[in-house]
Design a protein around this nucleic acid. Sequence first.
DNA 1: CGTTCCCTTGACAAATCTCAATAATCGTGG
DNA 2: CCACGATTATTGAGATTTGTCAAGGGAACG
Lengths: 262, 262
Amino acid sequence: MPVESLARSPAAPDAALRRLSGYAPLAPEEAALLRQVTARPVLVPARTELVRDGEAAPRPQVLLEGWACRQRLLADGRRQIVVVLLPGDLIGLETRRRPLPFGSVATLTPAQICEAGALRAAAGGREAGGETGNGEAGGRETGGRETGLAAALRQAREMEEIWLVNQVVRLGRQTAYERVAHFLLELRERLAAVDRVQENRFSFPITQEVLADALGLSVVHMNRTMQQLRRDGLIEQRATAITLRDVPSLVSIADYAGAHGT
Amino acid sequence: MPVESLARSPAAPDAALRRLSGYAPLAPEEAALLRQVTARPVLVPARTELVRDGEAAPRPQVLLEGWACRQRLLADGRRQIVVVLLPGDLIGLETRRRPLPFGSVATLTPAQICEAGALRAAAGGREAGGETGNGEAGGRETGGRETGLAAALRQAREMEEIWLVNQVVRLGRQTAYERVAHFLLELRERLAAVDRVQENRFSFPITQEVLADALGLSVVHMNRTMQQLRRDGLIEQRATAITLRDVPSLVSIADYAGAHGT
DNA sequence: CGTTCCCTTGACAAATCTCAATAATCGTGG
DNA sequence: CCACGATTATTGAGATTTGTCAAGGGAACG
């Protein structure tokens, strides 16, 4: 997670735009709104808490660079990472009627974050008191037809639910080996959507401890499982990047369905 | 799951109304709409598939009586129950832009179901082609303020996400013993919201196999874990009902936070 | 260079699973 | 009301997977 990994990142700042326009065609002014929102990213260090657990009105944010997660801690210190957040992902976009224990959100690596309150109006949340400010870009049109941005945000929300379901299946019914394979395939698919994958190779900036907390395993077992995958020629790790050497085999091992029922 | 258990059920048909009005105050005409929707429940047997996996436009439905689940099957036959659905829960309320592998929805017991397309307009989905038919009860008001029904449906959606997160934590970081305790507490809380709990006792109409598939355990281990809970005086099972004998202990064992950060 | 963090190993313990029977229950037809 | 077949709950024994503890090695960093 050295900071240089951020410097190294290629044409990165439009992760969110790329992501959302992949879900639904955006009108020019919607794209412009997005660009405006993501214009001034703030750099935060790893392990920064972005949303506290049970917060009723989390500040809407966009993750532009770096990895984060939604997590929940048990009283005795055990940690479960509920979902990993990648560049282009949205955080805390929905206002809640009351605080719910969704877990906290924290960065896993240094990250670039943008305030994204301007998207809330478009997300379908109820109109905020009047803090929107800028023009007429967001939200449903008065006629009730859904705008491209609203559709994209809705799709983004649905994808997050898919990832949650995937996580449940991994944790509930797959072996350590299968879990890792499945998780890596999901990461590859998600990162590809923001153009961060080349020939099945992508940056993989998290420690095995984090991975273990995401996949419900101990660090030691996580380590041994990764070694096994390497020995089997399925993956290759170098520094902070990983290559999926044999995607078909991984898909078969993990029983991976992809986001669109592939 | 005998049919008599349905006959036995008390003033039951308004599970959905009770549930939703607990989330947000409903206008009289909204309550009326709900009553109208749930007026003619259809009785379906156990193991009926209500939504197929990857269905793009599932028929919106309300579960009024009986239990169901969202589940995902692996190629080799393993099954993971993603979330259990209880009376008052909504199914397939959101239209999707494209089919996503959310898993299929199936009844676990005989159940009473109602078609609920009329709620879709109120759910915040885009306006359907004109099939709504009845008056002006649903949806956002033209001014953009959220109606009570829309708020309640949004809350219901958020609750479902909470249950998913709970499920992830259970499966990822809790022991069998803790998982069962946690799951039972969640059931109690959810059933209480539709008035199906008396003195910590509620109907528990599922087999240990189903429970095992929900909690990511084998049937045998599930059985032994239940026995342990009984021996420890934490629960008591009689026929198809269960009593939580010692809620505080269960809460402590499961590190249970409740829906509102209790 | 000395810390610190992370990855790796070995040895052993604990949790959980599988297989294979055996009891209990339930629903049904007589 | 009873016998029968099917489903569900329970047990025992032994195999696997996964976790815990403790320690060593290597790379990054001030």
